[in-house]
Design a binder for these strands. Structure first.
Length: 627
RNA sequence: GCCGACGUAGCUCAGCUGGUAGAGCAACGGUUUCGUAAACCGUAGGUCACGAGUUCGAAUCUCGUCGUCGGCUCCA
């Protein structure tokens, strides 16, 4: 295993399916060694839907090799070797690793170096065991299935790379992923499910539904929102505005860049610099000067300090803190809730970019709440309630609340060095969560640098986990910014701050919603809410259709008229493919009755209805944001 | 950032071991006036991501750059 070694207790609890997936990893290693005996193996655990094994090998394993490897695996399964457990002493294990027999088919000239390292990291006193299947022996705590023949249906899926023990300072290994199920039927179902998931992929739907695009000249991770995508953004912002207004928030606007000094004060530069775009240098005179440019005259060389660095903002908080500081604050002003759908830029590593889910330019549903300590609980609860209200509206029910705390070992490096405040705020937050009866998992070492946080984790269509929303406690920045309020007793005190973004960022949230709805947005969110489809293109019919179009638009409904010469079947097909929510099919019969025929995406033809009734229904559904 | 794979018309893709690019849909021009998922005919559209190199000849081979994807690391 990697540095996150499972305890023996956890291993004993491995499910049957995990056991045989883990056993399949041993069989994979056996097969690879038959072909490449020099391969050095590291860790090969079961994972969701399958297993992997990390190995070091000069030959680059490619998908073309899979057939060959699978054939060897099948031989091993067919041989039905028992998995034999052997307990050994630490010295024996080390000696075996030195003879190269661990993760191997027999003795080798070079030691089993990763196994050696793993043995050295096994805590003193813990039993060390080996597992054998056929000629293959591996260092392994188990457990396994009884025999290789018990392994059901499997298939190798992809090769990737992984750092040994997940540390980028360690060597990179090849990771071979496979998937394994009890039988062929379940395996086939799994692949069918993957095919379905691909259809939901927001990158695919985003292109097909013309929601957003990326362009090489604009830059990687910088999405361009097309009109249909921007329509969704507008609806989300409207939702946030209404919700926050009702909850006593005030909207503010801040700039997209600021001087270096702001981010030094906030602590972002020391803790967050890697994730920020490099600075722009601006001279006091106002002349821009690239860092590497040649000096134009001596005065510049003599005054190198005249350049001032500006950074694109990666977070809205420092700006909001400055707004707090702009006026004298009394305890009577608190809680103060400043909200902004702020645009931020983060220099994410190129390999981390992923469609809309991980971008470099993002608009965050941000707000900062400043409060006295005794207001914390009710503010924090109100924020959580806002989350839950949103999730209910969108029908999001598969999520996990993750309470992220600090790691005392990394104070001053990853986390601000305030051990007492960490303890206080973490206890306070944990207490609020427990009293509110919220289900959560606690994860150490994942906090923000300025305080503990609660993230809401969701999964993309292809199974990647993302933080969709966040609620963070900040005890560090208010002090750094000298934010104070005058309390009842006429003394100045430092407020607590909550950073929260229940709708996350437009990019990630919409990316998620595209997959969540599979592109079939509810009427209120639908990029094109109504398309009017006249049967034929005769003038009276078009006039009637236009009148309905104008009426809908006058009520801010996103409606479109298809006045093309396509046949009605083609018009319907086009609208269905674009997942237009409501189609109003209008023929001569409808016009004469002052009616429209309603067709709803996914529901088919609902028949003719009076024009007024249909329009009234559409308006109320949009207003109530009905699913 | 690292390892690997990939990059052909707006989209989806074909183009074998090098001989100089093709289909369907979309677009455009006509014809069609059609009641619930694709009417017919025609036209146009590509420096084969970009830049070097090998070769008589490169979409095809090599190298580099950019981008995308699968992972790792990281995160809203």
């Amino acid at each position: 295993m990697s540095d996150e070694r499972k305890t023996l207790e956890q291993r004993a609890q491995m499910t049957d399916i995990e056991r045989f997936r883990h056993s399949a990893a041993h069989v994979l290693a056996t097969a690879i060694l038959k072909i490449w005996p020099e391969a050095q193996f590291a860790a090969g655990p079961p994972v969701e839907n399958g297993f992997y094994y990390d190995l070091e090998l000069d030959h680059r394993i490619s998908p073309e090799d899979f057939e060959k490897i699978e054939a060897e695996m099948k031989k091993e399964v067919k041989a039905n070797h028992p998995f034999e457990r052997v307990a050994v002493s630490r010295d024996e294990a080390l000696a075996m690793a030195n003879r190269g027999v661990l993760g191997a088919l027999g003795e080798r000239s070079s030691p089993s170096k990763f196994k050696l390292d793993i043995i050295q990291n096994i805590p003193e006193g813990e039993e060390i065991s080996l597992y054998r299947n056929g000629e293959f022996t591996d260092l392994c705590a188990g457990p396994h299935v009884m025999r290789t023949g018990n392994i059901g249906a499997f298939k190798l899926t992809h090769v990737a790379s992984a750092y040994y023990k997940g540390d980028e300072k360690n060597p990179q290994l090849q990771r071979i992923y496979g998937t394994a199920f009890k039988n062929k039927t379940q395996l086939d179902e799994y692949f069918a499910m993957l095919e379905e998931a691909k259809k939901r992929d927001h990158r695919k739907l985003g292109k097909e539904l013309e929601l957003f695009t990326f362009d090489d000249d604009v830059g990687p991770g910088l999405p361009l929102w097309l009109p249909r995508g921007a329509a969704i953004i507008d609806e989300l912002e409207k939702l946030a505005r209404e919700t926050e207004f009702a909850a006593g928030y005030q909207r503010v606007r801040s700039t997209n860049l600021a001087r270096e000094s702001l981010y030094i004060k906030s602590g972002h530069l020391p803790y967050y610099k890697e994730s920020m775009f490099p600075p722009m240098e601006v001279h006091e005179t106002g002349d821009r000067k690239p860092e590497t440019g040649e000096a134009e005259d001596l005065s510049e060389i003599r005054n190198p300090k005249s350049a001032i660095k500006y950074y694109l903002k990666a977070m809205n908080c420092p700006h909001h803190h400055k707004m707090y500081a702009a006026l004298p604050r009394s305890y009577r002003d608190l809680p103060l809730r400043l909200a902004e759908y702020g645009t931020c830029h983060r220099y994410e590593q190129s390999g981390e970019l992923f469609g809309l889910m991980r971008v470099r330019s993002l608009q965050m549903n941000d707000a900062h709440l400043y409060m006295t300590p005794d207001q914390f609980e009710s503010e924090f609860n109100a924020v959580n309630e806002m989350y839950l209200k949103y999730f209910k509206l969108f029908g999001i029910d598969r999520y996990v609340m993750r309470f992220s705390t600090h790691d005392p070992a990394r104070l001053g490096e990853k986390f601000v060095d305030e051990p007492e405040l960490w303890k206080q705020t973490e206890d306070m937050t944990r207490g609020v969560l427990q009293r509110a009866g919220i289900n959560y998992v606690e994860v150490p070492n994942e906090a923000a640098f300025y305080g503990p946080k609660i993230d809401v984790q969701v999964w993309s269509a292809i199974g990647r986990e993302f933080t969709i929303a966040t609620n963070q406690v900040d005890f560090a920045q208010p002090r750094r910014f000298n934010l104070v309020y005058k309390d009842r007793d006429n003394t100045e005190k430092t407020p607590l701050c909550i950073h929260r973004a229940p709708l996350g960022t437009h990019e990630r949230f919409i990316g998620f919603l595209i997959e969540h709805y599979a592109g079939n947005f509810p009427l209120w969110l639908s990029p094109e809410q109504v398309r009017i489809l006249p049967i034929g293109d005769e003038a009276p019919l078009l006039n009637y259709s236009r009148a309905i179009l104008d009426e809908l638009r006058s009520h801010q409904v996103r409606a479109v008229l298809d006045a093309s010469t396509d046949h009605i079947k083609a018009k319907i097909s086009n609208a269905e493919q674009m997942k237009v929510h409501t189609m109003l099919v209008i023929g001569a019969r409808d016009m004469e009755a002052n009616a429209v025929s309603v067709r709803v995406h996914g529901k088919g033809n609902l028949g003719a209805k009076p024009r007024e009734e249909v329009i009234a229904d559409l308006l109320s559904s949009i207003k109530d944001r009905r699913a």
